[in-house]
């Protein structure tokens, strides 16, 4: 464990908690893609299949449970909470994410570290996390609604990606056998997609602020 990865995990967790608290406090999920949140929950559920079989550390196990619980809590809120679900942009959040799930699974069957049940699902979760932001990006382009996507959410999400890339660079230079190509290449693609999301986010922010001022 290095400080970059620890900080990356913390900023990732904070970004999820910020979104969950924002939805719960405002009882609204307008502008938030349920499909992206469902993909995130699927990412954690398929990545942490080793929760009960491989013990890395108490921190690792606790964080896995927290990530699974918080991402499922967001999905539950958006699907089941009587007030929140009414504000869901159902007719705008129409990205066909099932094709993305299928494509990632096929890729995981072809490209993985070892052909075992857990490893294929681990690779699947890595690929899926990279593209999970797409429904949210499309919804943002369509709705331009940034009410619930606070600046802090975007800031911590960006910090998570940046810190993880620094973590990989650090591990590459300090550990002799560090070669997590699947995670690194997929993580770089994910960061590029996040940069695109941040670009549209700030465009929407500026547009919304301009309208507010007029």
């Amino acid at each position: 464990m290095n400080i970059f990865r620890f900080a990356g995990d913390m900023t990732h967790l904070i970004s999820i908690l910020i979104l969950l608290l924002k939805i719960y406090a405002t009882k609204s999920c307008a502008g938030i893609s349920l499909k992206t949140q469902e993909l995130y929950a699927l990412v954690f559920l398929t990545r942490y299949l080793d929760l009960f079989t491989d013990y890395v550390s108490l921190y690792n196990s606790v964080m896995k449970i927290v990530f699974i619980a918080s991402s499922l809590a967001i999905v539950w809120c958006m699907r089941r909470h009587p007030l929140v679900r009414r504000s869901y942009d159902k007719d705008l959040d129409t990205f066909r994410h099932q094709y993305v799930v299928l494509a990632c699974f096929v890729l995981a069957l072809v490209l993985h570290e070892r052909f075992t049940f857990q490893e294929v699902f681990w690779a699947f979760s890595i690929y899926l996390e990279a593209v999970a932001i797409l429904p949210q990006l499309v919804l943002l382009q369509r709705s331009g609604n940034v009410d619930n996507l606070t600046g802090q959410y975007v800031l911590f999400l960006g910090a998570y990606r940046g810190l993880y890339i620094i973590n990989w660079i650090y591990r590459y230079f300090t550990e002799d056998h560090f070669a997590r190509w699947i995670a690194c290449v997929s993580g770089l693609i994910q960061t590029a997609l996040y940069a695109d999301f941040f670009y549209y986010y700030y465009l929407s922010r500026i547009k919304q602020d301009t309208i507010m001022r007029l």
Binding site: R5, V56, N60, K64, R114, A183
Partner: peptide, 10 residues
């Protein structure tokens, strides 16, 4: 070795 195969990153 076995530890190498376990994914230690979240």
């Amino acid at each position: 070795d076995e530890t190498e195969n376990v994914h230690d990153e979240l």
